[in-house]
Design a protein around this nucleic acid. Structure first.
Lengths: 131, 131
DNA sequence: AGCTTGTTTCGACAGCCGTCGATACAGCCG
DNA sequence: CGGCTGTATCGACGGCTGTCGAAACAAGCT
């Protein structure tokens, strides 16, 4: 019960759809498009691993040169995946001299996480009076 | 595909205590493929809305006949999307007489939700300026 | 300046995905 | 039984997506 503050998301990451679990009420049509875009960015194994790899680095950020090694795909492909993650608002990036660094945007992950939070349970009793 | 120790989240407990967040440590290659499959099922606006619509119904389940109305696509397309959700392990289904009912599997959502949980307090501005 | 390394962009190509209409399957009902 | 309604499957088609090599851009170094 300590995580009741999940509704507090950094205001800089706002898209109109914030925090309420999607199982509570039907998703808005516009919000669904926006969220689907984010989930699509997560729908590739390499992008998932990239994301967790970036976050796992000390300081929460990693330069591209550190991200190309663990994967079997070419470096342009990694760059493409990073671009997808960035355009989905899941990571941020910045060039520092020769290298480009990427970091995870926690608010975006929190937004999706809270959205997926399941209800307590779905009782098999099909009563029609609930809610 | 074996899901090994599948979530089995206690309904009374706070949803989301199944998998460690992916930002803690690099995602396993096999796990990434499995998770990407689930996220891909969520990467379509219609499927997202279907999922939330199903969960929003009284009793947590809905028959297909109640799901085709709100969408502009044909009934076979809805059926296809429901199949994708089912094969991703996000919903369950059962035929009852003439109608087929779908319901959300909370454990699957909880699994993804906990996976996306961001580190509790990641410095929001530590991104680039921290060096 | 020219070379070297790091990163992104560009075209191109194969494969996947969402969509449809038509059709098949499953139960109910008259 | 025959017809009717609800749902799933099939085959096809257009568009999107992941991948590559090649090339362009960026910054540092000699």
């Amino acid at each position: 019960m300590s995580n009741s503050e999940l509704t507090v998301v950094d205001p800089d990451q706002d898209a109109g759809v914030c925090c309420s679990p999607m199982v509570r009420e039907p998703l808005d049509e516009v919000a669904a498009v926006d969220l689907a875009h984010m989930f699509k960015a997560l729908s590739d194994p390499i992008r998932l691993r990239l994301l967790s790899l970036i976050a796992s680095f000390a300081g929460g950020e990693a330069c591209v040169c550190e991200l190309t090694g663990p994967f079997d795909v070419s470096q342009p492909t990694i760059s493409h995946h990073l671009k997808v993650l960035r355009e989905a608002g899941l990571v941020g990036s910045e060039r520092r001299g020769t290298w480009v660094y990427y970091w995870v945007l926690p608010a975006a992950l929190a937004k999706l996480s809270s959205l997926l939070q399941a209800p307590a349970d779905t009782p098999p009793t099909a009563d029609g009076s609930a809610r």
